[in-house]
Design a protein around this nucleic acid. Structure first.
Lengths: 367, 367
DNA sequence: AAGTCTAGGTTAAACGTTTAACCAAAACTA
DNA sequence: TAGTTTTGGTTAAACGTTTAACCTAGACTT
C-alpha cells in the first residue's frame, strides 16, 4: 500500500519537475522574488515604483527582471485591476483614408498611455455592428470609440454599452439621442463654405447629391446647402437636391439623372468623394468640360481626389485631429472612478481644398 | 475596546454591503451558482457543455445566465487557460485595399473560432514594427500574422516571437530565412503573365519600374520580368529596368526619366499601383496616348486603377484568399500543444485584370 | 526607558475561470 | 448481496498580479 502510494506520489512529483525543466515557463514576478529572496508583493511594488520599497531593492528587482527577460502578464493584472487596457474601435471600414487616419491617431495617443486598440469593421451593416459590440464587450474593453454604420438607427446596442458603464465616444457618424461624447466636423458650415466657393466661381445653379437624410451628418450638409443657397438668394429647386447612398455607382446614376434635366446645373456638390468620382466619370464620358461647363465638389478629401483627372475639390475632415480628440476624450474618463458621461461635443471646422474640378484657373496648370 | 473593534468591524461590513448594493457588479459564474444552489465549477462545466453535467442542470444554468445577463469574463478564462484568444496583426498600413481586405478576411475566419484580432500598423518603419511586436507580446496574443515593412531587414524581433513559442505567420512580404509559414502570390509568374500579355499586344520594348531589389517579392518580380523577356527573345536593357520606392511621387519621377530616353519603351510594367498612377499622370500630362503610344500595367489591383482615366491594367493579389489562408494556418496551430512550426508555404496564382491602359480595344469602350 | 514613528517590507486575499482529483448515491452486474 | 459502474456533481488549487492590512526592527522623541 505504502509502496503504491509512494509510486503515485513520485510520478506526480516527477511530472511536475519535468514540466519545470522542459517547458520554458515564462518568468513571473515570483521567479524574481525567489532570486532576490523577497516576497512577490515586494517585486510588484518595486516594479511600480512604490515609495515603500527602498531604492536599492528597486534597482535589484529591475536588474533581475531584465536578466530573466521578464514580461508582465497583462491578463493577470487586467483581471486583478478590473481593467483590460484595451479600447475597442468600430468603423464602417478601415479601407478609407479618413477612417484609417483616424484610427492611426487614436492608436498613437492611446499607446502612449499604455492602451491598445482592437479595431473592428461594421461594413456599414447594423447587424455586423451589433456583433462587433458584443465581441468588444466580451473582450472586456475599457471603452469604445465608434463611428456608426449608415444603416444604424436602432440605438439599443449602444445603450447596452452605456449601461455597462464603460465610456463610449462617437466620431463622424454620431447620434445626439445617445447623449455621449462626440467629435466631428461642422457639416452645416462646410456646406456653406462649399456653396460660397461655387458662388465666387460664378455658379448660379448648384445641385446637391446628398447622403441619406436620416443620417445626421448628411442631414446637416443638406440643411447647410439649403440655407447657403437662401443666403445668396439662389433658387432652391427640388430637382437639384438628390438623396444618394454615395457609392461610386450611385454617383454615376444620380449624375446621369441630373444631366437629363432640361435646365442643367452648372455646379454639383456631392456629399461624398466616392459618389463625386462616379459623377466625374459620367461627366468625362459625356465630354462635359469640368469645371467650364459644370463644376464639381466632393467631400472627404480622399487621396484619389487629387489623383483623378481633373482633380476634385473636396472638404478635408481633419482625421488626425478627430482621432486625437477621440482618444483624449476616452483618456479623460480613465482617471475618474465614477463614470458619468458629461457631454463633450467637439466640433471642428472643416477645410476646403480647392482643386481643378471647381477652379478654372487651376484647370490648365500642370505641375 | 470591544466597542471600538465592533465599530470598525461594522464599518467594514457596511462598506462591503454598500459596494454590493451600489455598484452593479457584473454577474459572475458564482452568482449563477448561488441562484441554483450548485457549485461554480458545475456552472462552468454546464456552460461548456461538459458531459458530466445533466441536461436538466445545463438548461437551468443557461436560463439563469440569460436572466442575469451573464457575460463570461474573458480575462479570467484567458489567465487560467494561458491563452488570450487574441491574435496580433501587423501590416505596413491599413489604408490600402489589399491590406484592409486581407485583414477583413482574417477577422472573419478567426472570429468564428472565438478569436479577436488586434491590428497594428508599421507605416513601413522598422522601428515602429518592433514596437508593434513588443505591444502584441505584452498583450499576450496567441499568435502573430504579419506583413513586414519595406525597411525591415533585421529579423531579430521576429526571432523573438518565434522564441516565445507563439505561431508566426507571414503574408505578402515575408522572408525565407525566418523559416515560418508564408502565404503570398507567385510574383515571379505574375511578371511572366504581364510580359506575355504585353507581347500579345505587340509590344517590343518593355520597361520595368520595380520595387527594392532587397525585398523578396520585388526581387522575384524583377527576376520574372527578365526571364520572361529572355523567353520571348526580347533584349534586356539596363536603362529599362529601374528600382523605385513605388510611391506616387517616385512613379512620376521614374516615368519622367524613362521619357527622356532616346529610344522610348512602348510599354511600362510598374511593380505597384501607386507608382503606376504617378506614371499615368506624367504620361497624361505629356499628352502621350495610352495605350497607343505606351501601354501601362500596374500591380495590386487597387480600386483606383479602375477609377482613373484610362483605367490601369493590374494584377489582383487575391487578398481574400490570403487573409483566409493566413487565419486558417494560425488556427492549425491552436490545437497542437507542442508548437513546432512545420513550414507551410502557400503560393497563390495571381490574376491579371486587363483594363484600358494596356488594351487598345478597351480604350474607346465606355460602359 | 518607555512610547511613538518610520522605513521597508511581508501575508494573505482577491480578481473570475478552469480543471484535476475526489466523492456520494444510484444503477447495474453476476 | 456485495461489488463495480455510472451519473452528476463537489472541492480546492491554480493562473499571475495587485493591494489592503499587518508586522518588525531600528530611529527618534520626551
Amino acid at each position: 500500500m505504502i509502496s503504491l502510494f509512494n509510486t503515485v506520489h513520485l510520478l506526480k512529483r516527477l511530472s511536475k519537475d519535468i514540466k519545470k525543466l522542459n517547458i520554458k515557463k515564462k518568468t513571473t514576478i515570483k521567479d524574481i522574488a525567489n532570486v532576490l529572496n523577497i516576497s512577490a508583493a515586494a517585486v510588484s511594488k518595486a516594479l511600480h515604483d512604490d515609495p515603500r520599497i527602498s531604492e536599492k531593492t528597486k534597482k535589484a528587482v529591475r536588474q533581475v527582471a531584465k536578466n530573466l527577460n521578464y514580461q508582465p502578464n497583462h491578463l493577470a493584472s487586467a483581471l486583478r485591476k478590473g481593467k483590460s487596457h484595451l479600447v475597442g474601435v468600430i468603423v464602417p471600414r478601415t479601407n478609407s483614408n479618413f477612417f484609417s487616419s483616424v484610427i492611426q491617431n487614436i492608436e498613437q495617443v492611446l499607446n502612449k498611455e499604455g492602451y491598445n486598440i482592437i479595431i473592428t469593421q461594421s461594413n456599414e451593416s447594423y447587424k455586423k455592428e451589433c456583433g462587433n459590440i458584443d465581441t468588444l464587450l466580451f473582450t472586456q474593453v475599457d471603452g469604445i470609440i465608434a463611428s456608426m454604420a449608415n444603416e444604424t438607427i436602432n440605438l439599443e446596442y449602444y445603450e447596452k454599452v452605456k449601461a455597462k458603464g464603460i465610456p463610449l465616444i462617437l466620431f463622424d457618424r454620431g447620434e445626439n439621442d445617445l447623449n455621449v461624447d462626440y467629435i466631428g466636423i461642422n457639416d452645416y458650415d462646410s456646406s456653406h463654405v462649399i456653396v460660397e466657393h461655387l458662388v465666387n466661381q460664378g455658379r448660379q445653379r448648384i445641385a446637391h447629391i446628398g447622403g441619406y437624410k436620416r443620417t445626421r451628418i448628411y442631414n446637416n450638409r443638406i440643411r447647410g446647402y439649403i440655407d447657403a443657397l437662401k443666403k445668396h438668394n439662389l433658387p432652391i429647386e427640388p430637382e437639384l437636391l438628390i438623396e444618394s447612398s454615395l457609392t461610386i455607382e450611385d454617383g454615376r446614376k444620380k449624375m446621369t439623372q441630373l444631366l437629363k434635366l432640361e435646365n442643367r446645373p452648372d455646379a454639383i456638390y456631392v456629399a461624398g468623394d466616392y459618389a463625386a468620382l462616379g459623377a466625374l466619370q459620367i461627366l468625362n464620358e459625356n465630354k462635359i468640360r469640368i469645371p467650364d461647363d459644370i463644376a464639381l465638389v466632393g467631400f472627404g478629401d480622399e487621396p484619389f481626389t487629387s489623383m483623378v483627372t481633373p482633380s476634385i475639390t473636396s472638404i478635408n475632415q481633419h482625421s488626425e485631429e478627430i482621432g486625437k480628440q477621440a482618444a483624449l476624450t476616452f483618456l479623460s474618463y480613465t482617471n475618474k472612478k465614477q463614470i458619468k458621461q458629461t457631454l463633450n461635443k467637439i466640433i471642428l471646422d472643416a477645410k476646403l481644398v480647392v482643386r481643378e474640378s471647381s477652379n478654372i484657373l487651376l484647370k490648365t496648370t500642370h505641375k
